[in-house]
Design a binder for these strands. Structure first.
Lengths: 187, 187
DNA sequence: TAATAGATTGACTAATCAGTCGATATTTAC
DNA sequence: GTAAATATCGACTGATTAGTCAATCTATTA
């Protein structure tokens, strides 16, 4: 594996376990099997490493969501895919999902340019725009829909985490029906 | 103001702005107007300070929720109070609400004894038990109800934060109707 | 082949910071 | 009033750590 990727992988593991403060760059380098200086060859500062790790993880998730998207899908189907793909990705990438939130509730988030963050939420914004014009969804501000969907996904994920594996998919399905019921415009 | 409280207040402000790592104890002491050693007189370690700040904030919120609770209230009314009190407290104590989540997504959470954390969620557990036997709410696992309500509160709060103050209470009200519609058992 | 650019190393440093400690002040208890 | 307990101070230290740097190694290219 490339050393840059090895550094990112190791940093993820250590940041999640020990936090930003509890993880010296020397430990990351050692555990990644590279020299101290190599880490700073790829990432000018520890802060850069923290940020680039965040961006790379978000990109990974977004790419997966992008492959699922199909312009012909109904709103409900599009939303279902977004919802299932996100939760199932989170379940098999728990460290990465945790890290996203770890950064989100830290001052490091403010260091990431607004343009980058905006780019990251393209997928969801596109879905919301589509939902809005479709008439399948209750009329509400975009930000509210975005926030509600996001927090419900987070909530269902947290719940499913505590459940036995053989019940997870059922739980996710039930969670979907609930949230769809929440936002669907009944005709 | 007592020096211990001054230290806690200052630590809150600095931790939220600069993070745990970005806030040296010396800076906390200086800005709180006490000597370096005084900080360690009240809090044996920096870790202790982080944890006790978390517990004191959670206790503050819980005390407010406790004063609202009335055994005679219907489930819907009890839930309404829980929901409104929490969001409105969060709106006027944004730093504190942020800090709770900052700790929640950090390794410091694991340092807080389970008994303490359990004590902190008493209010919500009591509400859920009451809701369960009332028959006013859909049958679902306690943890799911807990998680859904929590994430909905978080979501509405995040949304309301971005809204003009004169629209906030309406938004909160709408959010309440939504989540109640989600969990209510229609007869 | 020779030259250029990039990758890798690890010893080193300058700065920082959590926590100590002995001295002094203030409050409490008797 | 006096003694004990507690609060406060701030200079100090030992350890840690982010980041540097000069040297070496390894492609890439012309």
């Amino acid at each position: 594996m490339g050393k840059e990727k090895k550094i990112l992988d190791t940093a993820l593991k250590l940041f999640v376990e020990f936090g930003f403060h509890g993880t010296p760059t020397s430990k990351i380098a050692k555990e990644a099997g590279v020299a101290n200086g190599t880490l700073f060859h790829y990432f000018a500062t520890k802060e850069t490493l923290i940020k680039e790790l965040y961006v790379s993880i978000k990109n990974e998730l977004n790419q997966i969501l992008a492959t699922q998207a199909n312009p012909n899908d109904s709103i409900k189907e599009a939303f279902r895919k977004l919802y299932f793909s996100t939760i199932n990705w989170a379940l098999v990438n728990q460290d990465k999902f945790y890290y996203i939130q770890q950064v989100h509730f830290s001052p490091h988030l403010a260091q990431i340019p607004a343009a980058v963050l905006h780019e990251q939420s393209k997928m969801h914004i596109a879905f919301i725009e589509k939902a809005k014009v479709s008439g399948d969804v209750k009329i509400m501000p975009n930000e509210l829909l975005y926030t509600l969907v996001n927090s419900q996904i987070m909530g269902i994920y947290q719940y499913v985490l505590t459940q036995p594996i053989d019940q997870q998919q059922d739980n996710i399905e039930q969670g979907f029906e609930m949230i769809w019921d929440l936002i669907e415009l009944k005709k």
